[in-house]
Design a protein around this nucleic acid. Structure first.
Lengths: 132, 132
DNA sequence: AGTGCTTGGTTACCAATGGTTACTGTCGCG
DNA sequence: CGCGACAGTAACCATTGGTAACCAAGCACT
């Protein structure tokens, strides 16, 4: 018997735990960036694309749809001649900006340590042999 | 002149900003789970694999190597007969547990909202047509 | 009137990544 | 002598991320 042992705590290690669902979404690079981009107010698709930088339209669309599905943002289509679609964070989406900010703060603080560790690690490999 | 405008703030939206490097690592689903698994102390490879749940050995290896490179954990090989490798968080890695905990807390708190939104969204589509 | 531009996509298509399965090497044990 | 444990690695697929081309609607311009 495997006795799946209901994951009471946020045992995200169990693939069956729904917390994992959320982590999968957060774990998406673009989702995090989109939330960051939208935290100052709604943006339209094309602006968002530039703002996030380096995201392909297709992937941005996918990301936005997934986020809309999860209730993180709303998608408003204006029936205009050049189509205009606004994306805006919902309260739920906005509530994520805090945790994400914590993360980016950490990133900024420890960036140099990481880059340093990376250099050390790479230097420890046989330099002639192109590591990677 | 493009004048890349030095990303002074942690403008992770600029792909050139090194903060993005860190976000890419955090954005890795397995990295987050590994840190969670290791926060109570060092674990050996096989235990880690079970603990994380659903990770393939190859991917776990990749993840651990990348984390080692970034100075998030140490890899200790014991020259024993059945090989034994222990992975332990460094101080740097341990300092990430806080931000990550923030995230998982959010996940637990808002999980029901997300699942609810998801149901609503799915129900809005033509039920006969199997969306997705 | 016709052409082209803008916006927000979608549809191939291709490369990279994630994931699964099988296999290796060493050494003690039965 | 062969089996099993451990920590991977190799080879091989599947899924996904990313690119480039195209579409539809309507207006401005020629």
């Amino acid at each position: 018997m495997v006795t799946k042992s209901t994951p009471d705590r946020g045992d995200a290690f169990d693939p069956d735990c729904p917390t994992r669902v959320v982590l999968d979404r957060i774990g998406d690079k673009w989702t995090v960036l989109v939330i960051g981009a939208l935290q100052d107010g709604p943006l339209r698709f094309s602006v968002l694309r530039v703002r996030v930088g380096g995201v392909a339209a297709k992937v941005l669309t996918q990301t936005l749809r997934a986020m809309e599905r999860d209730g993180l943002l709303t998608r408003t289509v204006h029936a205009q001649v050049p189509p205009r679609v606004d994306y805006e964070l919902t309260d739920l989406g906005a509530s994520l900006t805090g945790p994400i900010q914590t993360l980016t703060d950490w990133a900024e603080t420890h960036l140099s340590q990481i880059l340093g560790a990376r250099e050390t690690y790479d230097a420890a490999l046989d330099p002639p042999l192109d590591a990677r």
